[in-house]
Nucleic acid binder design. Structure first.
Lengths: 343, 343
DNA sequence: AAATAGCACTCTTCACTGATGAGTGCTAAT
DNA sequence: ATTAGCACTCATCAGTGAAGAGTGCTATTT
């Protein structure tokens, strides 16, 4: 995208975007002229604004209103204009103290993190847990719950726990289950959970397995226990979206909430960004969320010592305080990464 | 509450409540007269309505509008007027099939149930998991996650799993942890989790424990693992609240969502109702939720084979379809109870 | 040639108006 | 006891006109 803008145009665009972010109201030429000691008359600003509109960076809701940045403008703004704020000492303190106070293992930490993100940004905080399957296998345990019902508990080396109810064809005695567990625990030590799964599938095919009943059963049940499953996701602060004036309309609000209710959508959205490092920003249509609604997403990934990655970030209106939210997301991702690596 | 109402008054009140539930608009005298072949003139109805208003059962938003039922009227309606609908075959089918398809143990079932409730009622579904602590202890497992960090996994006989991260003073070797686990598993077989906790606390005080280091350590760690914790709660269909015309105002909507965001409030509300059997109904202020907002709650409790109880129900506007929601909640609670008892 | 002042023009917002109609409460007639 | 009739109240709606914000164009200044 070629953007041949004079320094002056850029300054004016920046002023408009920031004004609009601050006030949520169309920005007029005189407001821009007054601001930022530009020493330009409203008339001049008007000319420039007309240009910017031609380039698709601004629109006006109607003739006699000011102008509003388009998504393209936000994109340009975050790419080349925004002056990122420093994370304040107080914000750092909050992030850290929240991390520390979280109990209940990995889930607790992530939930608390998403709450922190929401509080600091005043938008919606979101965290996708690192995919379990890339974690190193630590232990598996089978417990008989009822007739032909087994509870499988799978623990990763990071302390993430997953439990799954398995219905089996035969009924197993508790002793069988212990032996099955021991077998798998011995055999799979040190592998990642994905590898465990692969190995199990491999062995199930192998010939000698066919004749060892205990073995083949262990594998069959184990396979079910390590089967891939949807990622865990933590969303906090949905109500804050309602603070935004652009969503005060009931219709749009509903649209947004319905979109968020299937968390599946969010997961999908976020996992697309897993590969890239650093803070990523999706503006409006780029999120491919909820067709029309002007929603933006700022995320960064975090890593664990076992090299699994998760995503965290903030969802808000396109008209979002990018200059402060971006650093917050960045810093939080770093802190979480550090915490999860120090094991 | 003395309610000396003539048959005719009751019929008219019923008509008004049902009309208002259906339309969400103030009901006028002629609308009532037309309805239900009452063969009464609007004028007569007006007289009756004036009476009902004096008794605090109706109000009018302004002189020239129809009348609206008060909370007192809803109360009276559900207590003595409402004609409960049968649960339709189709609804039953939905409830049952949802229950069956749920995977992932207890949590899965309850989550699915809350979704079903929301779908069938078109309001918000809510389920509070049976308190873990009244369940029978089945097994405990300690796993070393890092330096002085232990993951405790606690399984109840119903297959509910709770895991907790414990930070200890000393560092334990894996073998120690296994032995500690075995000790507790032996000792506490057959007790409920509450009893386990009591027993641990007891033993910690006893003299001979003081001299057995392994023992005292097992107890100390075990105690942390079985410590009481907040109940699990499942809420689904929040977006449906937005369908209700009375919440189309952005302010009220926000109020409600904020109230719901601290799930703690909901849990507190629901656990108050645990003791009573059958369907319970809380109307408006009776919910003590969110000061002003006209919200009602219909719940019933369900029981498991181990006699622990949970709550499930529906939250909606006071202007709720009581006649159909009450039977749905009732039926769902019975079904869930049955499913959880057949182990 | 770039910047600006001036001005006509557009379009929203707001307050006010009067007409409409739904619904009531009272009184008098059935 | 019921109801018809009627005056009255009040929200809602469409229309009006003034105010104000902001624009685009043009002529002027620098």
């Amino acid at each position: 995208m070629e953007m041949e803008l004079s320094v002056r145009s850029r300054k004016i665009l920046e002023a408009i975007v920031e004004d609009y972010i601050a006030t949520a109201e169309p920005v007029g030429s005189s407001a821009v002229a007054r601001r930022h000691a530009l020493t330009l008359s409203p008339a001049t600003v008007r000319n420039v604004m007309a240009n910017l509109e031609e380039q698709g960076l601004l629109t006006s809701p109607h003739t006699s209103a000011g102008r509003i940045p388009t998504e393209k403008a936000y994109r340009f703004y975050v790419d080349s204009l925004v002056a990122l704020r420093q994370v304040t000492r107080d914000e750092k303190r909050q992030i850290i103290s929240h991390c520390r106070q979280a109990g209940a293992g990995l889930s607790g930490l992530l939930k608390e993190t998403s709450r922190t993100l929401s509080q600091l940004s005043n938008y919606m905080g979101i965290v996708v847990a690192p995919s379990f399957t890339a974690d190193v296998f630590r232990q598996i345990e089978f417990i008989r719950i009822g007739q032909r019902k087994i509870l499988a508990i799978l623990v990763s080396s990071k302390g993430a726990v997953q439990n799954r109810l398995i219905e089996t064809v035969d009924d197993y005695a508790p002793e069988d289950l212990v032996r099955m567990g021991n077998y798998l625990n011995d055999k799979m030590q040190g592998l990642t959970i994905t590898q465990v799964r692969e190995q199990i599938l491999d062995e199930m095919k192998s010939e000698k397995t066919q004749y060892d009943q205990l073995l083949s059963r262990s594998l069959a049940v184990g396979e079910q226990a390590v089967r891939e499953e949807g990622d865990e996701i933590f969303v906090e602060g949905q109500a804050r979206i309602l603070d935004q004036p652009e969503f005060s309309d009931a219709g749009r609000m509903k649209e947004i909430f319905q979109a968020f209710e299937q968390k599946g959508l969010l997961v999908q959205l976020l996992s697309r960004c897993m590969s890239a490092e650093g803070v990523q920003i999706y503006i409006g249509a780029e999120t491919s969320l909820s067709q029309s609604a002007g929603i933006s997403l700022i995320t960064s990934r975090f890593v664990t010592s076992s090299n699994t990655v998760g995503m965290l970030g903030v969802i808000g209106p396109t008209r979002m305080g990018y200059s402060s939210v971006i650093p917050i997301v960045d810093y939080t991702a770093r802190m979480v990464s550090r915490l999860l690596s120090e094991t």
